Amino acid sequence: MSGRYPMNKKFFQLTMITIVTCLSLAGVSCGKDEDSNSGKGISAVADDKSQQDVLKIAVGSKDHTTLVAAVQAAGLVDSLANQGPFTVFAPTNDAFAKLPAGTVDDLLKPSQKDALKNILEYHVVVGNLTESILKSEFTGKDDELGMANGGHTKVSLKNGKVLINGATIVASIPATNGIIHVVDTVLLPPAKK
């Protein structure tokens, strides 16, 4: 079944390249320096007007250092700085910690770049899907979200919270190029047949 928001993989890759280039030209660094928001939680970053696109929000969050390292290792930095719009389901460091021991370290190896890229692209949708859109247009329906890696996810509702393939959205942060939904679990794409 195709999702309501299908993703063109080439478009996503071009978008990621544009984002990284823009960040490089603007002098944005993913490292820790005096001007970064290192050490701030995601809620503090959400209130910081200088954080504009989805990548800058993630870079400025102390709760997403593993995600940022993974985006860098997969070579997807430029894609998330593109105009979008993107909906990014951003797992926290605690979400990555729930994976079996050694999984993250293994995925960050250069030899695992394609596998890591596939997982990260499974966290992105082209379009700006707020929680209210997810609730009204996808919850309880047969539609699925088309993810950037070509896979699909299911949206459900539990105790008033939106779940994406069972991962709970715990916070949402609007960005200039879309929205970030902070999730408590890493979304793992189904094995390719």
Rank of each mutant, 00 (worst) to 15 (best):
L107G: 11
V125E: 09
I119L: 13
S111R: 09
G102M: 09
V77I: 11
N128L: 13
I133A: 12
K135A: 15
V125P: 07
N93K: 06
F96E: 11
G146L: 02
A115F: 08
A115G: 03
L120P: 09
T92F: 13
D94F: 01
G75V: 12
V124D: 01
G75C: 05
K98S: 14
E137M: 13
T103G: 08
E131T: 11
G102L: 03
I119T: 07
V88L: 14
L80D: 03
P110F: 07
F138S: 01
G102R: 09
G140D: 08
L145N: 00
D142V: 05
L99V: 03
E144W: 00
E137F: 10
K135G: 09
V126K: 03
L134Y: 11
A90K: 10
V126A: 14
A115N: 13
D105Y: 01
K113W: 05
A81K: 13
E121W: 00
F86Q: 06
A148I: 07
P91S: 04
V104W: 05
T130Y: 04
N128Y: 06
D114S: 13
V125R: 05
L134W: 09
P100H: 14
T130R: 01
S132F: 08
E131L: 12
V88Q: 11
L120M: 03
M147E: 00
F89D: 09
N149S: 05
N93A: 12
E137K: 14
K135E: 13
A95F: 04
S132L: 04
L134E: 06
P100C: 06
V104D: 03
D142Y: 08
E131V: 15
S111V: 12
I119K: 08
G140Q: 04
D143Q: 01
L108R: 10
E144N: 09
N82V: 10
D143P: 00
V125S: 02
E131H: 00
N93F: 11
L134H: 10
S136I: 02
D114R: 05
A148D: 11
V77C: 02
P110S: 08
G84Q: 14
N118Q: 12
F96V: 11
V125Y: 01
S136V: 07
A95P: 12
L76C: 02
T103D: 01
T87S: 06
E121V: 02
E121S: 11
T103A: 15
A101C: 00
T92C: 12
A95E: 12
K135T: 14
L129C: 06
P85Y: 09
L80H: 01
D114K: 10
D142H: 02
K109T: 04
A148P: 08
G127I: 13
S79M: 13
